[in-house]
Design a protein around this nucleic acid. Sequence first.
DNA 1: CGTATAGTTGATTTGGCTCAACATCGGTGG
DNA 2: CCACCGATGTTGAGCCAAATCAACTATACG
Lengths: 248, 248
Amino acid sequence: MKSPRKTPLKLEDVKAESCTFDSRMKILHDLPFFKKISREEIHNVNNVFSDTKCNIDEVIYREGERSTRLYVIASGSVKLIKQNFDGKEVLIDILKQGEFFGNLDPFGETFYDETAIAQVSSCIMIINSEQFRTILEKYPAASLKVLDIMSKRLREAQEMIKLLSAYSVENRVAYTILKLGEKLGNPNKLGLLIQIPLSRYDIAGMTGTTPETTSRIISKFKEEGLISTGRKWTVIKNINRLKEKVKI
Amino acid sequence: MKSPRKTPLKLEDVKAESCTFDSRMKILHDLPFFKKISREEIHNVNNVFSDTKCNIDEVIYREGERSTRLYVIASGSVKLIKQNFDGKEVLIDILKQGEFFGNLDPFGETFYDETAIAQVSSCIMIINSEQFRTILEKYPAASLKVLDIMSKRLREAQEMIKLLSAYSVENRVAYTILKLGEKLGNPNKLGLLIQIPLSRYDIAGMTGTTPETTSRIISKFKEEGLISTGRKWTVIKNINRLKEKVKI
DNA sequence: CGTATAGTTGATTTGGCTCAACATCGGTGG
DNA sequence: CCACCGATGTTGAGCCAAATCAACTATACG
């Protein structure tokens, strides 16, 4: 059963970049909502952002804190977590380079309703919500792009509601791995490689189940040759047969 | 146990209004995103909308159909439904007067990912997604308002993901009734009256459970004096004690 | 007033949770 | 470089919340 553990991951691959001026400019320029803005204007926008380096597992903000800031991932990845009354963690989303999180509302009298944690060492750019809205008011096309991103996230959240309401844990785990592959995967001779540390506990939090049940299902998928996993990576070996596990 | 059935609802209350010019203008003017637009401009906007009357249980659009339109509820209410592979219904949202649904994306090559059904006789205003985006580009403040609405919906969807992932059915049913009360309730001598036809099947679809389990829980809540219900209404009699049923 | 639809309630089954013991991994210090 | 150890993952056994199946009752509506 046990195949020799050949990690497909060179550790250097996930070393965090520092937030250089050039990398920040490139990130901003590549953001879907700033695509049509000129280089000089991007330069101005860049000046409104500050940035910070976050180590792995570092908390960026905590559920319930006053919220006045919007964050953009310059490099790395971030997970958004909610907790229920007795401490069980629900993993709401995993965000990658170029995605934003935090608070879009202006004038701050609201609170973060999730906790943001760096999943790997990351560089995060920070802007005041109000300033971000000022930028959006200035560039209506950017506003619409942000709106599209929010629509997409809402669609995805509603799809997860459907899965949690009317699908088995096995369906949900398969769906979640496929979605992660789509979003974060890199094709590779072994299959589709997802290079993030993803514990059984994380997957359980994304699928509304327990680490034990997750482990059983992942073991089954491995036995069936659908995926293989290590502590810091997952490979989808047979995407079509994995898709058969999700009846949507 | 059984209390005499005195319906707190006059049936005339839910008779659908027709889509008169005046009511349309009023709806548009009251939309959060058009609040700051002048009367003449609203008049122009109004000309871009068409409207239609929908009877109770009439399907407005179906999951999977090509989508190019955005809808605004002028009067009545609409439920959004998804179905799983074996036909089980998941009720994603209930929308009321002034709320929009359908597709915000332009140029149509996408598909509705839910089915919209009139929950009561309703008047629905219709606009082409592309035309709506043109309006938003013209009024950046309106764009930001729409963005706020989408943010709120995303927050609510993520909250429901948390509930489905980490709370009991009883918690979820209590939460759902409270949310409906907040959104659709009218204070009344009996408590907070929710005047919509809400079957056990509907509540089951909103909470990821079955009609039977819903019935048991609703019966329990009734026995405890928290709520009372008829086929077309629900009253929250003791909102504080109902809140104790949801540990958030 | 009769019939179809929706709701209730009970009995039984079951998917997945909990609790528990053990295995494996990978980082750390000797 | 290897041995150790805490953290993470795996596997088994038993249990429980909620699903399913089924019989029955209440309600609305023609």
